[in-house]
Design a protein around this nucleic acid. Structure first.
Length: 271
DNA sequence: AATCGCGCCTGACGGC
DNA sequence: TGCCGTCAGGCGCGAT
């Protein structure tokens, strides 16, 4: 399931193939993604030259002079670089054909992903304009988290998964970062001390950095742009390890649903 | 304003 | 073997 490290891994894989290429054609086999792929997309993006490829949160932005393609991988999406006319498999919904005769292929079994076209500054798009800071931005710091969380009773796990607070922290890395910083995921965000927020900010950055270095986490279906899995799964401390011993203290890892999402933690190491 | 919970969707898996 | 229920989960959105 693509979170920030998986999106970043994808971005790094596709960027060299996209830079300065002309989009010679677009094939939409199924427009039923999270939002219907807009009718205008094919005509507007065709013949555009790709200026840059960026990431904002979990969104991938392919910028051209006349507009930007906004991609989101949802739960099960991936992007691959393939020779054009490669064999089409089930759930290969969109091909963006490049002048190099490669194609960028969007594959997404669950269709929670998105492919949109926007003119003007993509950061002003409705989906992006309210996003919080990137995890490595100066603005993402303990002082701000502490200030933003006062009087809030929301569980800390849900708080750090809120994209208005910080982008890119999904279910897996939220559990991992809270373990690393020794914070119980159920704690009310508003009761957490400045000092603990300092540890949490660092933990989020460390976990995401490590996951990017490992090419992301593949639980089931994530692959990078070459079709290979990520290797961070073997470094997960708590996620998906219910009943297995905590690797710090041997206490069995617990699983609890918080905000309709499975959360994993150690009762001894996290308080 | 903050919080909660729904719904979108397919595939894997377990039980019978 | 096959059918069916459950779970997985990003995240916008409507309801409270």
């Amino acid at each position: 399931m693509p979170e920030l490290p998986e999106v970043e891994t994808t971005l790094r894989g596709i960027e060299p193939y996209l830079q300065s290429q002309t989009i010679t054609d677009i094939i939409i086999r199924d427009n039923r993604l999270r939002w219907p792929v807009p009718e205008s997309f094919k005509m507007e993006a065709k013949n555009q030259v790709i200026k840059s490829v960026k990431r904002r949160g979990k969104y991938i932005l392919i910028e051209t002079p006349d507009g930007t393609i906004i991609l989101h991988l949802g739960m099960s999406g991936n992007l691959r670089i393939l020779p054009e006319n490669s064999t089409v498999k089930k759930h290969d919904h969109i091909d963006i054909i490049l002048s190099s005769k490669h194609c960028l292929r969007f594959h997404d079994p669950r269709r929670f992903g998105a492919c949109l076209w926007t003119k003007g500054d993509p950061l002003d798009h409705k989906l992006l304009i309210n996003l919080g800071p990137e995890p490595w931005d100066d603005e993402f710091n303990a002082h701000n988290l502490h200030k933003q969380s006062r009087q809030r009773r929301i569980a800390i796990k849900n708080f750090i998964m809120d994209s208005k607070i910080v982008v890119g922290v999904g279910n897996i890395y939220a559990s991992e970062a809270l373990f690393l910083s020794g914070i119980n995921p159920n704690n009310a965000a508003g009761k957490i001390s400045l000092k603990r927020y300092e540890a949490l900010v660092t933990a989020i950055q460390v976990i995401l950095d490590q996951a990017i270095k490992q090419g992301g986490t593949t639980l089931r279906d994530f692959t990078n742009s070459s079709g290979e899995p990520g290797y961070f799964k073997q470094e997960l401390s708590v996620y998906g390890r219910e009943g297995e011993p905590c690797n710090k203290c041997n206490e069995p890892v617990r699983k609890k649903v918080i905000g309709q999402r499975s959360s994993f933690y150690c009762v001894k190491c996290q308080s």
